[in-house]
């Protein structure tokens, strides 16, 4: 698209894009640090993530301010209007993603105090996967690339599958030894939080598709999270 006749209009729209990109980068690094803190049992790093969330909240406020001013003073239409609406929605999803990463970090502090129980590789992998989705989603937003956004949109299945298998695994550990229950219960929430971040990124991807194409993805998304139906039965002792 060509530039606006009024240059300040472009500058305001660009500043909206820059804020969203900054929020995405921050959410991504918060999740990476939270997972790192978890696997390295680093309570200090985890505490940094918790305080870092304030910056993300502040950025969301700034996006709201810019969007409100654009709507009131420029009366954007068509693609410009969709850009402002998308920024409003995407910023609130990214802010929620940051909250969830903060929650992962808080639990990492508690888990670091308990003796190590299980290998955390599954959770770390899930975190890395979601982190990659945040990055790709933000790339798709900046490049206005609906196809790339659709890739992000469809890739939530893998996260859901990992979540279901982690759920099963953690239940098994808890049954083996009741002393595992405290750390494993926290890890269940950690896994759920990361899975929820994935869901917010799916929303972000939908908004990007709407921004570029003027309509939401048409097909139903295939969902793979079966953890709500999962049960693990204890072995019956034979007498």
């Amino acid at each position: 698209m060509a530039q606006h006749i009024v240059k300040a209009f472009d500058e305001q729209l660009n500043s909206l894009d820059a804020k969203i990109a900054e929020m995405g980068g921050l959410a991504e690094s918060m999740l990476a640090d939270a997972c790192d803190a978890l696997s390295k049992r680093d309570a200090e790093l985890a505490a940094e993530v918790v305080t870092g969330d304030r910056k993300l909240d502040q950025l969301e406020e700034e996006v709201n301010d810019i969007a409100m001013r654009l709507l009131a003073l420029r009366q954007p239409t068509a693609g410009d209007l969709r850009a402002v609406l998308a920024a409003l929605k995407i910023s609130s999803d990214l802010e929620r993603a940051g909250d969830l990463a903060k929650n992962v970090a808080k639990r990492a502090i508690t888990i670091a105090k308990a003796p190590p129980v299980t290998p955390l590789i599954g959770i770390v992998n899930m975190g890395a996967l979601v982190q990659g989705r945040i990055k790709t989603a933000i790339d798709a937003f900046v490049a206005r690339d609906a196809k790339l956004a659709m890739d992000v949109w469809s890739s939530d299945e893998e996260v859901d599958q990992l979540h279901t298998s982690l759920f099963r695994e953690l239940l098994t550990y808890m049954m083996e030894d009741p002393r595992n229950i405290t750390p494993c219960a926290h890890l269940l929430f950690v896994a759920k939080n990361i899975e929820r971040i994935g869901d917010h990124i799916t929303n972000v991807a939908e908004r990007i598709v709407f921004l570029v194409r003027g309509k939401l993805p048409e097909r139903e998304r295939h969902k793979e999270d079966d953890s709500s139906y999962t049960e693990v039965r204890p072995f019956k002792k034979e007498n």
């Binding site: 698209m1 060509a2 606006h4 006749i5 068509a78 410009d80």
Partner: peptide, 12 residues
Amino acid sequence: ERTEGYITGRFG
């Protein structure tokens, strides 16, 4: 694209 350019205030 020409419609979008006009209503959003861009050079057509």
